[in-house]
């Protein structure tokens, strides 16, 4: 049980990088970008093929980042220069990428088990530090021997990586270019009147978003030990689920907080799915359905709670006014009319 949960946290952190990409397109640019389902695989495919052809796995993963960036840019160009509707540009790119990914891999599945990957390199390096055996003796000494994951290395490195990317996104969104990117999603007519090229900004934003998605795809492929042409199906919903769960739990008052929410949301999502799959009547194939249900819940429940609260407030006020017999409405109106 613990091992399964630990595993899901580990995977959750890797997927969090993808979710940050989805956050950029959905929330910052206000662009429902479905390219993600394709670019995630493009990342995995690019990294896998490069690794197999002998490229250093770190370089191969960086290559995936570039491939994702290009894919996102194409979607952006379709939308801004081709004047194609946002959803449709993403769908078109997603479909096109399916074939392109097959071309990159040359077959539907590229195994990486025998290869040196980022994951194996990190594990080997971590082993050398001797941290795992230290944790082992520590946990055993306090009687938690059954809760020992095989290695803390992947989790630690991926956590640091995801957090560093979150930090980089935070900082980027405070730069002059970052500010104009945020304003594009907020009010794009206004940004143009302050001499920003909104077309170019959208292309850039989608490029960065899909670069993160593909980067995450590359890591997932290496983590799983294979790249598969179908591994991106429903990725957009997983990303969205992470964003929405995170926002429901952590909130999104500031950028720093919103990106943190995405990281935590991605991990929570994995935990929920892992726990759900432990139910007798659910199978692995039900995962997409579970995801859809989670998203629906995360969207509907906060609204229901808010409604409930509003209702309670209303009742309370009615009771107060009823007993006091005064008219509080005028005061409220007077206070509001101040500039």
């Amino acid at each position: 049980m613990f091992t399964a949960l630990f595993g899901s946290v580990e995977v959750g952190v890797i997927y969090a990088i993808m979710a940050l990409g989805v956050y950029l397109s959905f929330r910052i640019l206000d662009f429902p970008d479905l390219t993600v389902d394709g670019s995630f695989v493009t990342g995995g495919a690019t990294a896998a093929v490069l690794i197999i052809s002998g490229v250093n796995p770190f370089l191969a993963t960086a290559g995936a980042l570039v491939a994702g960036f290009l894919a996102g840019c194409v979607t952006g160009i379709l939308h801004t220069k081709g004047k194609i509707n946002a959803l449709l540009s993403g769908i078109l790119m997603m479909i096109a990428l399916y074939s392109i990914n097959l071309r990159i891999m040359d077959k539907p599945n590229v195994p990486l088990l025998a290869e040196e990957t980022v994951i194996t390199k990190i594990s080997a390096w971590w082993q050398g530090l001797g941290f795992d055996s230290m944790m082992q003796s520590l946990l055993t000494s306090i009687g938690l021997s059954e809760y020992i994951p095989s290695t803390w290395g992947i989790f630690t490195v991926m956590f640091v990586l995801a957090f560093a990317i979150k930090k980089a996104v935070d900082l980027f969104l405070k730069t002059e270019i970052g500010l104009s990117l945020r304003a594009v999603g907020d009010n794009d007519g206004m940004v143009r009147s302050f001499s920003a090229n909104t077309d170019w900004l959208k292309v850039l934003g989608l490029g960065i978003a899909n670069a993160l998605v593909a980067f995450s795809g590359a890591l997932v492929a290496q983590y799983n030990g294979f790249s598969d042409v179908g591994m991106g199906i429903g990725m957009i919903i997983i990303g969205l689920a992470s964003v929405i769960i995170g926002e429901a739990v952590i909130g999104n008052a500031t950028i720093v907080r919103a990106t943190l929410a995405v990281l935590i949301g991605a991990v929570l999502y994995r935990l929920i799915v892992t726990l759900a799959l432990r139910a007798e009547f659910l199978e692995t194939g039900d995962m997409k359905l579970i995801t859809a249900v989670i998203v629906i819940f995360a969207l509907v429940v906060p609204k229901l709670i808010e409604k409930q609260k509003a209702g309670a407030r209303k009742k309370k006020r009615a009771a107060q006014l009823g007993s006091a017999g005064t008219n509080g409405g005028d005061q409220v109106a007077a206070a509001r009319s101040d500039l």
């Binding site: 002059e176 500010l179 304003a183 907020d186 009010n187 302050f194």
Partner: peptide, 23 residues
């Protein structure tokens, strides 16, 4: 104005009207 951004961020955005934006 951009509603989800702060007053100073909006002003920063406007400040760049006359110069190219950088990092």
């Amino acid at each position: 104005t951009a509603p989800t951004m702060t007053i100073e961020e909006n002003l920063a955005l406007a400040y760049n009207r006359t110069k190219p934006r950088s990092l």
